[in-house]
Design a protein around this nucleic acid. Sequence first.
DNA 1: ACCTGAACACCGTTCAAGT
DNA 2: ACCTGAACACCGTTCAAGT
Lengths: 232, 232
Amino acid sequence: MKGITRERIVAAALELLNDEGMDALTVRALASRLGVRASALYWHLRNKQELLDEMSTVVMRRVTDAVSAIPPSESWRDDVAAYARVLRAEYLRHREGARIFSGRRVSDPEIVRAKESWLARLTAAGFTLAEADDVLDLITAFVVGIVIEEQERTQSSPGRYSLAERDAWLGEGAELVKAAGHLRDQGDARFERQLGIVLDGLDRAGPRSPSSPSEVTDTRTGTGTAAVDLPT
Amino acid sequence: MKGITRERIVAAALELLNDEGMDALTVRALASRLGVRASALYWHLRNKQELLDEMSTVVMRRVTDAVSAIPPSESWRDDVAAYARVLRAEYLRHREGARIFSGRRVSDPEIVRAKESWLARLTAAGFTLAEADDVLDLITAFVVGIVIEEQERTQSSPGRYSLAERDAWLGEGAELVKAAGHLRDQGDARFERQLGIVLDGLDRAGPRSPSSPSEVTDTRTGTGTAAVDLPT
DNA sequence: ACCTGAACACCGTTCAAGT
DNA sequence: ACCTGAACACCGTTCAAGT
C-alpha cells in the first residue's frame, strides 16, 4: 500500500501546488498527503530544492513529450505555433506554472536534446542555426512572459476586481487606460493574436525564400543552412 | 539614528535580496540589517507579503519614472524599444528580478496611470487602442521572458558550467544543439536582436501608413485612432 | 531498504510591556 | 508613536532507532 517513490512524491507535490499554492507546499504537508512522516521523504530526496528541481523536470519533460508528438508540417510557422501552444498549455496546468517552472536549469539532458529536431526543422526551412536558436528562444520568452501575466490575472489568490472597480481605483483621467481595459480580451484569442505578431517578426527575420530552403550562407557563422547534416 | 520607516525597510529588503538571495530574505535577517528586532517591522508592515508587494511597487515605480523620462521621438519603434530597455535594465538590477517582480498586482494606481501617455503615443502613431494595448503587453511579456532566462544563466547560485562541460553532459548526438550553444551570444546584443524581431512583428501588425498617423477606424471598436482626445 | 520519533535551529507573527 | 522580549505554531533537516 505504501511504495513511496520519487515519482509519486513529485506527482503529489504538483497536486499539492495546484490545490493549495506554493506557500502551502511544505515538506510536512507533502508527507502528510502521502501518509508518511516528513523525515521519510529525505530517504528519497536530498532536500526540498531537489524536490522543486524534480517538479520542474517533470513539467519540462511533459512539454518535450507533447512537442515531440507534433507532426512536422510543411510550414515552420505552424510548427513553431504548435510548440508555443504546448508550452503555454503545460504552464497553465500548474498554479503559477510559468513563474515557477520557467528559467530553471533542467537536470535531464534528454530534455535539452529534444531541441535537436526543432533546430533541424528550422534550418531545413531556411533559417541559419543561429537564427533557429533565436526562434526557439524568443518564442519561449514570449510564452513565459504572457503566461505569467495571464496566471496573475486568472489564478491570483484573493479578490479579482471588476472593470468598474478598476476604473474607480484608477481615479480621474487615464481614459485610454480605462478604455483599453474594457477592450482587452483574454485567454486563447489574445494569445493567438500576439503569437501571430511574434511569428510575423520571425517571418521577416527568417528564411529569404519562405517556402523552400535557401542556399544562403550565414555571414556570422559560415554555416550553410540547407546543407547541414541532420542526425535526426 | 533610528528612524525605521517603510521606505528604509523596503530599500534594505531590496539590498538584502541582492546580497543574499530570495531564500535569505527573512523578516529576522532584514530586521537585523536595520538594527532592530523582527517584531519592530510589524509596526510598519502588516506582514511579509506586504513587504514583498512594496518591493514590487518600488521596482515598478522606478520603471515608470525612467520610462517617463524618455522623450517622445518621431518613431514609435524607438519609443517602444526604449521602454523595453528600461524594463530590462530595472529587472536586471535585482537578483531574479524578472521572476520575482513580473506579473505582480501593483498597489499604486499612479503606476498603471503611467500607461496613459504610452497609449496616447501609440494611438497617435496610428495604432488602434486595442493594438496599442497589445504592443505594450507583448513587449512586456517578451522582456519578462527573456530576462528570466538571462538571469538564470548569469545570476544562478551554483556552478556555471562551461560549453565543453555542457557538450559532455549532452552526450552523443545533439550536434545542432551543441553547435547552437557555441554560436549563442549573450547580453545586450542578443536582447537587441530579438527585440528587433518583435518590433518587426509589431510593425507589420501596426499602423497602415508607418510614418504618419492614419485615419483608419478600428473595425473592432469603432474608435477613431488619430482623433482620440489626449488628456496629457 | 525504508520509515518513525525526537530533536535542532530557524521561521513568520502576535502581543503585552516598556519608553 | 515606536520598539523590545517572550512566546506560539510551524518550518526544513538530521539522525539514531526501529522493522
